[in-house]
Design a protein around this nucleic acid. Structure first.
Lengths: 298, 298
DNA sequence: TTTCTCATATAGCTTTTCTATATCAGAACT
DNA sequence: AGTTCTGATATAGAAAAGCTATATGAGAAA
């Protein structure tokens, strides 16, 4: 499309408008400029194309034969551009775009999407799974859910859930355990990228200073959970990560000792912006579903 | 299409190029500007549309979902514009556009077009019939044929035929004539817009100072000829006007006295321009046909 | 002849576009 | 861990495009 470099797009638009509307006056009105401006652009565009598009008559501009062919094609082109712009400017309130961490999506949210559709048939959910923090003011996302300390500049963070961690393992492994300290003798499954360590739990369990028998280190929390479900050892998990596996009986949380990590799940939205109804609806639904999950830990 | 007023066309083009080519670098190359220029335009266009079209990644620009929809429509629009411009810039050497006076077209040229097609099957003739002098440098016309003194500034005039006038009337009217002076007794058919008068012929016939019996005045030479063919009187005609009617026997030129008007048929072309082959071919063909016409007057 | 309509020309101002340069972030390489 | 490379963005200021306001011209209509 390099040939478009040799002519000004505004000039082509002026040609098209005059061709379709029949006069400089009418074209100037549609383009929102003066008659002189349109006249100049038409003259210049004809010069750049080295082609006479209009014959000037006392009654107005008449298309030449070659001009009619060009103008028909220009009309089609600008009609497409106009439609494209209208499409981009139209705000489709039925789509809610959320951004969540992949592990949160896979281990908690995905099992509940059917219920969201039941509760909100008028909202189409679009999920963007990424670990990066997003600023809804700067991208297409309506709302994000992230785990962290919530102290993010530039965005509004609203606490959803304080993160608590607790050891999880298979029921058969748990049968052999008599004391919380017995957990430390099991092979430990470590998430190399976790923002916390076993220390926070040991303190809560009165086992400060104890050591672990490290067995497996993974770089993905989801893989760690899969390893625990497979009976490879014990993992320090948190509510949204392990909730479904606990509910299904694949894993158990021996002794029920939980420790707060100091981090939390936060809703992330744009600062200083009035939240649309669909965002408020989504938050309310998430809170209700999270309350259901927390019943597991009472 | 007023919605296009709210966004810069150059910005839409930048969006489309980046979307199609995948990077600012590639788009800058196609648009013939710097990377910074494209970056600015993309950012500004996204702001004007109030829509994120691209997600910035270390590996380049990735379309958002909404962006993909917009870019597809933009691509179609600009493809049409590109095609339109290519069409306009293509010089179709097979079309020869000529501009002639309507009377010349109707009374001389139109009868010969079949022979032109025979001689030059590769040339498509397009005839623009107007009495206005044209400057081929300023419009879509390749060559014009006009009658006048040839002293036109700004164009190149090349003599084709000195104009000669002579009385014409029906054969039955001519039967009653014994002397050139008898012509003046017939009803005269006058072209009110002719550039000459009967005086030029009377001088050539040795009838200087004689008077006419004016009967009909028309404002169109073609109508005058029709009236003469209808037996309404005698008309002072010229070669290209009356040639066909003479050849067909509808009219005769009694006594064969012809007077030069001082005007001529001229080829009109753009000054200082090397003539394309099709123009040279056309001129040669016209000269050959004109020689055929002149055989009537030997 | 006068008036009206439509297009064009011109000067100069405003806005857009562009270049050149510096900077930043993340990936790739050593 | 440090360095280099790639790709995008920000910025200041220059260049080009676009625009307004006004005057002018041509032809049609009254």
């Amino acid at each position: 499309m390099r040939n478009l470099n040799s002519v000004h797009l505004n000039g082509l638009r002026a040609l098209e408008a005059v061709g379709r509307l029949g006069s400089l006056q009418a074209a100037a009105e549609e383009l929102g400029v003066s008659i002189g401006a349109v006249s100049q652009q038409v003259i210049k565009a004809e010069a750049q194309l080295d082609r006479t598009i209009f014959e000037r008559t006392p009654k107005g501009m008449l298309k030449t034969e070659a001009g009619a062919v060009l103008l028909a094609a220009l009309n089609e082109g600008f009609a497409h551009l106009s439609r494209a712009v209208a499409l981009a400017q139209r705000r489709d309130d039925s789509i809610l775009t959320i951004s969540v961490a992949p592990v949160f999506a896979a281990r908690w949210l995905v099992y509940r999407l059917d219920r969201f559709a039941e509760h909100h048939p008028d909202i189409n959910l679009r999920m963007d799974a990424t670990m990066k923090l997003v600023d809804p003011a700067l991208c297409d996302v309506d709302i994000g859910i992230r785990v962290g300390d919530g102290r993010w500049p530039d965005v509004k963070a609203e606490l959803l859930l304080e993160q608590e961690v607790f050891p999880v393992c298979t029921p058969s492994m748990a049968e052999r355990l008599r004391d919380p300290a017995d957990l430390l003798a099991l092979p430990a499954i470590i998430d190399g990228r976790a923002m916390f360590s076993w220390d926070v739990w040991m303190r809560a369990a009165g086992l400060e200073g104890a050591t672990l028998e490290t067995r497996h280190v993974f770089n993905d929390a989801s893989l760690c959970l899969d390893a625990a479900i497979a009976g490879q050892g014990v993992m320090l998990a948190w509510q949204t990560l392990a909730g479904y596996a606990l509910q299904q009986g694949q894993l158990v949380a021996p002794f029920g000792i939980r420790a707060r990590t100091g981090f939390g799940h936060y809703f992330v939205t744009a600062q200083g912006v009035r939240e649309p109804k669909k965002v408020r609806d989504f938050k309310a639904w998430i809170r209700a579903e999270m309350a259901e999950t927390l019943k597991l830990f009472i």
